[in-house]
Write a protein that binds this DNA or RNA. Structure first.
Length: 154
DNA sequence: GCCAACGTTGGC
DNA sequence: GCCAACGTTGGC
């Protein structure tokens, strides 16, 4: 099993929005970065655990835990000219972008703040706190996952 | 709103 | 294929 961290701007889609969905499940669309796309397409598997991270907001940090319930399939927003994620170079027989479905497992009672994560010496190597941390989907190691989960529940 | 750090685009 | 210009991300 793999572990991941997915970023979302809560103004656009927050953990509460996910909680409000039927089955607390939603497709994670709009990924338009090739490296993130490759993770989604090749490595994100059903059952993988996902930290739901809130970015660009008042309380930046990890807000909860979700699980992959459906592996990569074409992101329909790339075909929709009305969508801001429309990609004129993509077509249904040659989709360029994929998405997965995630189901909420747990909303943490408090957001685990980025500042706290940065202050944890065991976590200093996580992609999130290193340079070039702009990927919206990034892998988390087993060790990082358990440390962060403990910290979030504490 | 600022700005640094990236990724992408497009001319050559 | 290089690289400058441009757009975006995201913490503060």
């Amino acid at each position: 099993m793999n572990y991941w961290l997915f970023k979302s701007e809560p103004d656009a889609f927050s953990i509460d929005d996910l909680a409000a969905k039927p089955q607390q499940t939603e497709h994670w669309d709009g990924i338009r970065n090739y490296q993130a796309r490759n993770y989604l397409r090749d490595e994100v598997k059903a059952g993988d655990q996902v930290f739901f991270y809130h970015s660009s907001c008042k309380e930046v940090g990890i807000a909860g835990l979700a699980e992959i319930v459906k592996e990569a399939y074409p992101d329909h927003s790339q075909f929709n000219p009305e969508s801001k994620y429309f990609d004129p170079k993509a077509s249904p027989d040659k989709p360029r972008w994929v998405m997965v479905d995630v189901k909420l497992k747990q909303k943490f009672s408090k957001v685990l703040p980025l500042a706290k994560i940065k202050a944890m010496p065991e976590i200093s190597e996580i992609g999130l706190v290193k340079k070039g941390h702009r990927l919206s989907i990034m892998p988390v190691s087993d060790k990082e996952f358990s440390i962060l989960l403990d910290a979030a529940k504490a």
